[in-house]
């Protein structure tokens, strides 16, 4: 369903110069599965998901979603996906109903189908009380519910959740995770990024651990445990990150040393 190959993104930064946010990231996510991107803050998860949702374009590499290239067919790709992130806010001056309706129409849905789908979603997610509430009056949990409803109104085969539970209280977070699990059961392909181990452990069928734009390990939870001889995902995560930080630091040291040698010469 989703095939990512050597995806690279380089930003220009005033302080750091060329900043590599994604470094040749490759993975596959299949229908009926939740693929979890697990990494600390600044690992490149949001950048990767923004590229998949065609909001950003990659510097190098490809990403194919449902057979469509994100750089060559961005409009078609956007019809195949629903994107929810902590940053994808709701409009302050629109009600929950208007917001979901607006995105349904942007996805080309006709009146009849749109009304049916909206009734179904508002019923299923117990959002009827949000129909006439303006975005500015909603709580964080309410906003996230509307965001998810907005993302799945056109019933896309792929759903992308970028730290969808960040900032939510435990009750709402649990509800969101339950919803995502239900969507997986419906056969949707789901990409889910998080830095919370328990969420990844509980929800994801496959996990990719990323740090500083690099994919460090990938596989199902069981595969990862077996491969790295570790009983606990959290411990495995810290071990991988520490190892990567150390190797990156030693690489920088070698580079620095070679630079010094280059300066002083022999």
């Amino acid at each position: 369903m989703i095939h990512v190959r050597r995806l690279t993104k380089v930003y220009k930064d005033l302080h750091l110069g060329d900043f590599v946010a994604l470094n040749q990231l490759s993975f596959d996510a299949l229908a009926g599965q939740i693929y979890g991107l697990l990494g600390p803050n600044g690992a490149g998860k949001t950048t990767a998901l923004r590229i998949l949702s065609t909001v950003l374009s990659p510097t190098h590499g490809t990403a194919i979603i449902n057979g469509l290239d994100v750089t060559k067919n961005p409009e078609e790709v956007r019809q195949q996906i629903g994107f929810v992130s902590t940053n994808t806010a709701v409009y302050d001056r629109m009600t929950g109903w208007e917001m979901v309706e607006y995105f349904g129409r942007l996805n080309g849905m006709d009146d009849e189908r749109l009304t049916d789908q909206m009734e179904f979603i508002f019923e299923r997610f117990q959002m009827k009380n949000l129909k006439d509430v303006l975005g500015s009056k909603m709580s964080t949990g309410m906003k996230q519910k509307v965001s998810i409803a907005r993302a799945m109104i056109h019933d896309p085969p792929v759903l992308i959740f970028d730290e969808a539970t960040s900032g939510l209280d435990v009750m709402v977070a649990r509800e969101v995770l339950k919803t995502i699990a239900q969507l997986r059961d419906q056969g949707k392909c789901i990409i889910f990024s998080t830095h919370i181990m328990r969420e990844a452990e509980k929800l994801c069928d496959r996990i990719g651990v990323v740090n500083k734009g690099k994919l460090l390990a990938e596989g199902s939870k069981r595969d990862l445990m077996e491969e790295f001889q570790e009983d606990d995902l959290e411990e495995l995560f810290f071990r991988l990150i520490e190892q990567h930080e150390k190797s990156a630091a030693s690489l920088n040291g070698v580079e620095g040393q070679s630079n010094m040698e280059g300066v002083h010469g022999s």
Partner: peptide, 14 residues
């Protein structure tokens, strides 16, 4: 500022 631009950019509208 409100974060809604990203929401719109990820919609099918060009």
């Amino acid at each position: 500022e409100r974060g809604t631009l990203e929401t719109l950019l990820s919609s099918p509208a060009t």
